[in-house]
């Protein structure tokens, strides 16, 4: 019969007790997980990059980071290039969706790209998605940003892209810190979970 090498530590005796009950098994599994986690803190860390500045692409990094924090992980998001839109003070106006060249976007009627390229189609598509999200009670970007700060998710804006785009520190929401590739990599090398979004 298999006995965990740490069974002793968690006070499970198999002598005269050949069948482990559920509670004992749980205790062993818990201890094994704790042991593995203690040896490898990378399992408790998530480092994400948000590189896209559209309304649809603002969701994945914010949802994953707030959920990671809710799982007890230390989470951070590095906002680079168009991803800076997400933490810009003006995110509500900047985050849009474009139907152009996006055949996956649900439309009330099929429309050729030529029509989608007409002036005004972008704002219409953005309004459509915003009202769909509101109707379905999807969490708003504002709520997710508030949550992220509340849960101590690290929000780091890429200094190089800020300089290139002409943004100042003042252009960003409260709680954003600034850094470069090394700031991200220093966190990412200690995290098992790294995603480029």
């Amino acid at each position: 019969m298999y006995t965990s090498p740490r069974a002793k530590l968690v006070n499970v005796s198999t002598i005269g007790n050949p069948v482990l009950d559920e509670e004992a098994v749980r205790r062993i599994v818990r201890s094994e997980i704790e042991h593995a986690d203690a040896k490898d803190p990378g399992t408790a860390s998530a480092a994400l990059i948000a590189s896209k500045g559209t309304l649809d692409w603002a969701y994945p990094p914010l949802i994953l980071a707030t959920t990671a924090a809710s799982l007890g992980m230390e989470a951070s998001i590095f906002f680079t290039f168009y991803g800076l839109n997400i933490v810009h003070k003006d995110y509500d106006r900047l985050l849009k969706v474009s139907p152009l060249g996006n055949p996956a976007m649900p439309m009330p009627v099929p429309m050729p790209n030529l029509v989608l390229g007409l002036p005004g189609m972008g704002p219409i598509a953005t309004k459509m998605m915003q009202s769909k999200f509101r109707r379905k009670n999807v969490t708003t970007i504002r709520e997710l940003l508030d949550l992220a700060r509340d849960l101590d998710v690290g929000l780091i804006a890429c200094q190089m892209t800020m300089d290139a785009f002409g943004y100042k520190a003042d252009d960003f929401i409260q709680g954003v810190r600034f850094g470069g590739a090394a700031a991200f990599l220093a966190k990412a090398r200690k995290a098992h979970l790294t995603l480029f979004i």
């Binding site: 959920t67 809710s70 799982l71 379905k136 969490t139």
Partner: peptide, 9 residues
């Protein structure tokens, strides 16, 4: 009435 990630959070 809340959607992902709110129930977990």
């Amino acid at each position: 009435g809340l959607l992902c990630p709110m129930p977990v959070v």
